[in-house]
Amino acid sequence: MDETALLIFTLCLQAAIGSMIFITLGKQLYKDKQFKVSALISACLSVVGVLASFVHLGQPFSALNSLSNLGSSWLSKEALLAGIFMGITVLYAWVQYYRPESQGLNTVLRWAGSVLGLVTIFSMVKVYTMASVPVWDGTNTFVDFYATAIALGALIFLVSSFKELNEANQRLFPFIVLATVVIQVAAAVPYAFSLGLNGMAAQASAEVLSEMGVVIALKWLLILGGAGLLLWPAIQKAGATGAKSASGIIYVAAAILLIGEIIGRYVFYASMITSHIGLT
């Protein structure tokens, strides 16, 4: 598969967007917390994602060309929105570390990043659903991209801010992750089966997915297993799991779930069979 740069771009940017959303939610719950580590991770992921998109374009100046058709091209809109989102996350992280007293600017950047992030994911989805690739052309891509952002965002926020959260919210965020990945499964499985009922390209995609059955099974095993393991400290009785033990389990669960999401995005690109023109 030669879409590694796109895999990095989509996963990193969606994770950064999800992280920013949960930082915004966290600030609503904890007025006195900064969540600096989460902000820094969001900024770094957005930078890595945008740089990966440059690699995919072949040369940095091609990025400027990708902005030349904003009126009719979702690819141009995606490039512009991703760049603006990256700028907001970097500025927000800088403000968190060096101007934490600027509460007004903090709030504006946080909410702007969250709202723009959701719009950016929409533009990413439109790029793929309009690409004449049957396996991408459906509501499953919407669900998958948004669910990935929410699951990874909640995961990043939980891991990076675990000690800043009270016990109730330490239990809440694992349930959010699990609920989100269950929605992913509920959307993906019936959609995969429905491909065989459509045209030749869709049937070919279904055949590719069938041949990758073991990989897909591993993907869901890791994603659901990681989300389930994430719940373990949350369902224990108070005091039954020490802080160090709980954080260790969360780190392991996060790694397992992340590997599953990476495999899932690999499958997303590996199943690409176009009906006539391909990605534009």
Rank of each mutant, 00 (worst) to 15 (best):
1 M>W: 08
7 L>G: 10
9 F>W: 01
9 F>I: 04
9 F>Y: 06
10 T>A: 09
15 A>F: 03
16 A>N: 05
21 I>H: 05
25 L>F: 14
27 K>M: 12
28 Q>F: 10
29 L>I: 13
31 K>F: 11
31 K>S: 15
32 D>E: 14
32 D>C: 00
34 Q>P: 00
35 F>H: 09
35 F>K: 04
43 A>P: 03
43 A>D: 04
49 G>T: 04
50 V>H: 01
51 L>N: 02
52 A>M: 04
53 S>R: 04
54 F>P: 00
55 V>M: 12
56 H>I: 03
61 F>E: 14
61 F>W: 12
63 A>T: 11
65 N>G: 15
65 N>V: 13
65 N>K: 13
68 S>E: 13
70 L>E: 10
70 L>H: 05
75 L>M: 14
76 S>L: 12
77 K>S: 08
78 E>A: 12
78 E>C: 07
80 L>A: 12
80 L>K: 03
90 V>I: 11
91 L>K: 01
93 A>T: 00
98 Y>A: 12
98 Y>K: 13
98 Y>M: 10
99 R>F: 07
100 P>T: 07
100 P>I: 06
107 T>L: 13
108 V>H: 08
110 R>P: 00
114 S>L: 06
114 S>D: 07
115 V>D: 05
118 L>W: 01
121 I>M: 06
123 S>A: 15
130 M>G: 12
132 S>C: 03
135 V>P: 00
136 W>T: 02
139 T>E: 13
139 T>G: 14
140 N>Y: 09
140 N>M: 12
142 F>W: 14
143 V>H: 02
147 A>N: 01
150 I>G: 02
152 L>T: 09
153 G>A: 06
153 G>E: 02
154 A>N: 01
158 L>T: 11
160 S>T: 15
168 A>H: 11
170 Q>W: 03
171 R>C: 07
174 P>I: 01
176 I>A: 02
182 V>F: 10
182 V>K: 02
182 V>T: 10
185 V>P: 00
186 A>V: 11
189 V>A: 08
192 A>K: 09
196 G>W: 09
197 L>N: 10
198 N>T: 01
200 M>N: 12
201 A>D: 08
201 A>E: 07
204 A>Q: 15
205 S>Q: 04
205 S>D: 06
214 V>L: 14
217 A>Q: 08
224 L>R: 01
226 G>P: 07
228 G>Y: 05
228 G>I: 03
230 L>P: 05
232 W>C: 10
235 I>Q: 06
237 K>N: 14
237 K>F: 09
238 A>N: 12
238 A>M: 11
239 G>P: 12
243 A>Y: 05
244 K>C: 10
245 S>H: 12
246 A>P: 07
255 A>P: 08
256 I>E: 10
256 I>T: 10
256 I>G: 11
258 L>T: 15
260 G>S: 08
261 E>A: 10
261 E>D: 06
262 I>L: 13
262 I>V: 15
264 G>T: 02
266 Y>M: 10
267 V>T: 10
269 Y>M: 07
269 Y>G: 04
269 Y>F: 15
272 M>G: 10
274 T>A: 15
275 S>C: 12
276 H>D: 13
280 T>N: 13
